[in-house]
Design a protein around this nucleic acid. Structure first.
Length: 420
RNA sequence: GGGGGAAUGUCCCGAGCGGCAAAGGGGGCGGACUGUAAAUCCGCUGGCUAAGCCUUCGUAGGUUCGAGUCCUACUUCCCCCA
């Protein structure tokens, strides 16, 4: 791939040594451009959900490193392309979102970037883009004549995103088939408007990005570049960012900083070094030191990873607090009042709150049926006492300590019911 | 246009003589062992006011004491012929 290439620019050097690079259309060409300084580069983000999840962290980190090494980050909201839907890497087409949903998602997603990037009007300040600005108003006939004529359907049919659907005999609608044309056109448009020379993205975006390079050449842009990051999986092969509770969201209102910290704390041993490089800004020698730890000492590295990664998304203070909550809970077995809380009214407690519904209320189990099952396998505890009787109820006594009862599912998930 | 298949537990794959809350995987969750790890082993994996009740097999009807299973129509997808 690029083993024999040694970059001169800080940008490529950092990305490569930290494991961000999977493919590049032209390493030395891009290196030159990065060396010149102020390299404008963009990455597109889907607006299919109200928050980005850890899967999007990798591209965000790439933009952050770009800025730190003297480039100009251009995060692009897919306000327009999300209305069409990217078929890459998907077996089936997804339901189309309404424009209102997309706009709401967009607004909600934007906030995360402020944590990672500096905004402003300087040469290396971040500029937030939205492709709805130029895609939404496109005229079909004009677009076909100006842009569409440059696309070869023959070639499009050979692209992985399309080929996969055809081979597996899954439906590929015309609207999705057009997605890559729009993304390619984005590149040209962003070059013209903001001078972007580089588009980055996950490895599944390679085809879309390279199509943009091609289109640029035909439409007379300067030489454009493509750089993709590897597809992230854990050492045991699972996709990143999925837990039983759902995706690992970056927005605090969708996943608490404490739970976010826990996600990283539970990283598999084999992933720690890789994740430290990708998801923290810690210097490489510090990472090397942490990565050298063996056996139970690896837990120190995991705590550092968790705190650093959480600090990036939720701020240093929230990260330290999550770390402290975890320390008190797991290492001292103490009751940490900073665990996630769910309020219960005093009347409910007085009326006798059944254990089953208490755990449902706490959000630890989805149904009372699940609560029953967990009790059978000894998975539920109230104030660290295993629940054995599914017909039991919580009483005032359980809330004696600080007006709070600690409910636990398994050894790791704890929620406080607090008496209001 | 003609002929033949397929749709199953709302995470996925997948069995299912008319008695079915429905085999088996994967995934997930819990337990044991550990280091809040991995691997391994064990259990669980529709809902509820729970020895009972309710809702599930593409959609709508029908036959039957009883339908995922049989019949009819419809929807979607696939294959073959034109």
């Amino acid at each position: 791939m690029a083993d024999d290439f040694s970059p001169k620019s800080d940008f490529l050097r950092v990305l490569m040594e930290r494991g961000f690079v999977h493919q590049c259309s032209d390493f030395s060409g891009l290196d030159e451009k990065a060396l010149a300084g102020g390299l404008p580069a963009y990455i597109g983000f889907d607006c299919t959900a109200a928050s980005l999840h850890v899967g999007s962290l990798l591209p965000i980190m790439m933009l952050a490193w770009l800025q730190r090494t003297g480039g100009k980050p251009l995060p692009l909201m897919g306000g327009g392309t999300t209305r069409v839907g990217d078929p890459s890497g998907k077996d089936e087409s997804r339901k189309l979102l309404t424009v209102e949903q997309i706009d709401a998602n967009k607004a909600s997603i934007k906030r995360v970037f402020e944590r990672f990037l500096n905004f402003g009007n300087g040469p290396t300040d971040t500029l937030m883009l939205d492709n709805a600005d130029w895609l939404a108003g496109l005229n079909y006939i004009d677009f076909l004549r100006d842009v569409g004529r440059h696309f070869s359907v023959n070639r499009m049919l050979t692209m992985d995103s399309v080929k996969l659907r055809l081979e597996r005999e899954h439906e590929l609608s015309f609207i999705e088939f057009n997605y890559m044309c729009l993304q390619a056109y984005d590149f040209v448009e962003i070059n013209r408007r903001y001078g972007a020379l580089l588009q980055m993205g996950g490895s599944d975006q390679w085809g879309n990005i390279v199509t943009g390079l091609d289109l640029g050449r035909r439409m007379g842009t300067p030489q454009l570049y493509a750089l993709t990051s590897p597809l992230l999986t854990t050492a045991s092969g699972a996709k990143m960012g999925k837990t039983a509770a759902g995706a690992v969201w970056l927005n605090a209102d969708m996943l608490s900083p404490y739970d976010y910290w826990q996600y990283w704390r539970n990283t598999e041993d084999a992933d720690v070094a890789r994740f430290l490089k990708l998801f923290t800004f810690l210097p490489m020698d510090e990472i090397a030191r942490l990565s050298a730890l063996q056996g139970a000492e690896i837990n120190e590295a995991k705590k550092t990873l968790a705190t650093e990664a959480t600090a990036l998304v939720h701020g240093r203070e929230a990260a330290e607090k999550a770390a402290e909550t975890a320390r008190a809970t797991f290492e001292e077995g103490a009751l940490a009042l900073s665990l996630p809380k769910v309020p219960v009214s005093a009347e409910e407690i007085a009326a006798g709150l059944g254990v089953l519904s208490a755990f449902v209320k706490a959000g630890l189990v989805p149904s009372t049926g699940e609560a029953r099952r967990q009790i059978k396998s000894g998975g539920l505890r109230v104030n660290d006492v295993v629940v054995t009787d599914e017909r039991g109820a919580l009483s005032q006594k359980d809330f004696e300590k600080d007006g709070v009862a600690k409910l636990s599912l398994g050894k790791k998930k704890h929620v406080l019911l607090s008496r209001d």
